[in-house]
């Protein structure tokens, strides 16, 4: 049975000095779902994200995970950014096991799991390579495997494919959906690419211009598994139009 309030934000707001970055936001994310947050740049997406990751203390409000208050506490969610943040001094295997290395020391079981993960997702031959030898897409795969290695149910992905070219990006999106289907984790995905958000998500949360606040919460009624053809389905177009209108009107009124 799925838990609808797996992640629960209760009136979370953030003010930096005198600048309001995020207005009080209340949001529930169901367990196992894929939710995207879209909005204009500087709308507080990353602030929201850092608050959920526990890297920043919200000015007001609470963050609950499985009913437990985790406000301002790091280490309960997998976290991945646009920059792959691979350690150049660690091999692919060493980077996938970075989480264990940073918290308790890498065990041989970690290494077996990491190797199996790399094997399953096409990087099995590269375990002993250093990141400098990998392409941008491969590096982001390693970064996602590093994120998956944490057994956290919640994965926070902040524009992970933002720096990739269009083709690599699409194949990475397909791959992410495959991984998500197999791993059954809850994904909160930040992007400013509307196509990407629709293609990937069950649900899209639209934020307003800074200070950010939720202006719309849409569910994406597209069947899974999603493929290239999904991008041209009428439902896809309709959803895209809705979101574009929301963001556009938001821009005009500001």
């Amino acid at each position: 049975m799925e838990f609808d309030r797996f992640l629960h934000l209760d009136g979370v707001a953030k003010t930096f000095d005198l600048t309001e970055a995020l207005r009080p936001t209340t949001l529930d994310i169901a367990e196992g779902s894929f939710v995207s947050v879209v909005g204009p740049s500087g709308c507080g997406k990353s602030t929201l994200f850092n608050v959920i990751a526990g890297l920043e203390q919200p000015t007001t409000g609470r963050v609950e995970l499985s009913g437990v208050d985790v406000t301002g506490q790091a280490g309960h969610a997998g976290y991945m950014l646009q920059k792959d943040l691979l350690a150049p001094w660690r091999t692919v295997l060493g980077n996938i096991t970075m989480g264990a290395h940073l918290t308790r020391g890498v065990t041989s079981e970690d290494e077996h799991r990491a190797a199996a993960l790399a094997e399953r997702y096409g990087l099995g031959k590269f375990l002993a390579h250093y990141p400098a030898a990998l392409s941008g897409g491969m590096r982001q795969r390693v970064a996602l495997m590093r994120t998956l290695m944490t057994s956290h149910q919640l994965l926070l992905l902040d524009e992970p494919f933002g720096a990739l070219d269009a083709q690599t990006r699409f194949s990475m999106q397909e791959w992410l959906l495959q991984v998500w289907a197999e791993e059954r984790r809850t994904v909160l995905f930040v992007t400013h690419d509307i196509d990407e958000a629709i293609f990937l998500s069950d649900r899209i949360v639209v934020l307003s211009d800074r200070p950010g606040t939720v202006v719309a919460d849409l569910s994406v009624e597209l069947p899974r598994p999603r493929r290239l053809a999904t991008l041209t389905e009428p439902t896809f177009m309709e959803t895209k139009r809705t979101i574009l209108n929301l963001l556009h009107h938001e821009g005009e009124s500001a």
Binding site: A53, L55, A74, G75, A87, W89, R90, L102, T103
Partner: peptide, 27 residues
């Protein structure tokens, strides 16, 4: 040292000593 790399370490809940030996020193 790349600040984002340090933030990543923080997101894992890494201790200052682990962060030092695993990130800052090799970097």
């Amino acid at each position: 040292v790349d600040r984002d790399l340090l933030t990543l370490a923080r997101s894992y809940g890494a201790s200052p000593w682990r962060t030092f030996s695993a990130i800052e020193l090799p970097a």
